[in-house]
């Protein structure tokens, strides 16, 4: 299948199993440049696995993924190069505990992209300033609060200047008091035109920030559409049932 993909990223009939458990049962998804897409759905519906497949952290069992008109599921593709363009932030932050905040952020640009340390450091400081952590560059991750760590993790991913950013329930492990700061960063990124695919349980935020909502159930995309339609007039009874339980 050598036809060109329409948007920035296209997944076609992606399947993924862990042992006997089929987590993704044929998922197809199109992401346009500059689009913000929220994945919603119950735990275990396959949101995280889909995100991890999109940047090749998991190998798909079937189906293909196109990024920038290139089939990245081809085993001859350099996965490291693909991941430089598709950043991901995890629920559990996963900062490197042996490195300071600045070193965490600079590691990727310098060691993976081959940028000069001075450039990388300058950008790290600008970005830290933007997320309100300008004074914490020298701190170590364990000395930061959960909300601060997650903002550093976001900066670490953005510092790679990715063309697509995947966010995997990045506020789920946070104290409700700290969620706001992290969501502010995402609003900011959206304003900058960053293409984002995020799995989230923050329904209000998803409605506010996204161009499109994708509801996943049982390893399939049950329904997708603009937030207003999904939240006010869901077509699928499963979507309606899920939203009834999760909307405030």
């Amino acid at each position: 299948m050598a036809e060109a993909a329409a948007g920035l990223l296209r997944a076609e009939a992606v399947r993924k199993s862990f042992g006997d458990h089929e987590v993704l049962k044929g998922v197809s998804l199109d992401i346009a440049e500059g689009e913000v897409v929220c994945l919603i759905g119950a735990s275990g519906s396959g949101k995280s696995t889909l995100l991890r497949c999109l940047n090749l952290l998991e190998q798909v069992d079937d189906g293909d993924i196109w990024f920038d008109d290139r089939e990245i599921t081809d085993p001859r593709v350099d996965a490291d190069a693909v991941r430089r363009d598709i950043g991901i932030v995890f629920q559990a932050y996963n900062l490197f505990p042996h490195l300071s905040v600045e070193q965490n952020i600079v590691l990727g640009p310098v060691r993976s992209r081959g940028e000069s340390r001075a450039d990388a450091r300058a950008r790290a400081h600008t970005l830290l300033e933007r997320v309100g952590l300008g004074d914490r560059a020298g701190a170590y991750p364990d000395a930061l609060s959960g909300g601060q760590q997650q903002r550093v993790a976001l900066v670490r991913a953005i510092a790679m200047q990715p063309r697509l950013l995947l966010l995997d329930e990045i506020t789920s492990a946070l104290d409700p008091m700290l969620v706001g700061d992290v969501l502010d960063v995402i609003r900011d990124l959206r304003a900058d035109g960053m293409t984002i695919v995020m799995a989230t349980h923050e329904m209000t935020f998803a409605r506010e920030v996204s161009d499109r909502i994708v509801f996943m159930a049982d390893g399939r995309i049950e329904e997708s559409g603009p937030p207003e339609q999904i939240f006010t007039a869901p077509r699928s009874p499963r979507t309606a049932e899920f939203l009834a339980r999760h909307l405030p």
Binding site: N55, L57, D80, A81, V82, R83, R84, G87, I88, F90, A92, N94, L95, F96, P97, H98, L107, G108, R111, S112, R113, R156, A157, M160
Partner: peptide
């Protein structure tokens, strides 16, 4: 394993993730 995943997610190769992220810890 999440430390490995974080290293690889930054586009670091297996060897670099081992050397820069995992071995020091």
């Amino acid at each position: 394993p999440t430390q490995w995943a974080s290293g690889r997610a930054l586009g670091l190769s297996y060897g670099k993730t081992l050397r820069l992220v995992v071995l020091p810890q």
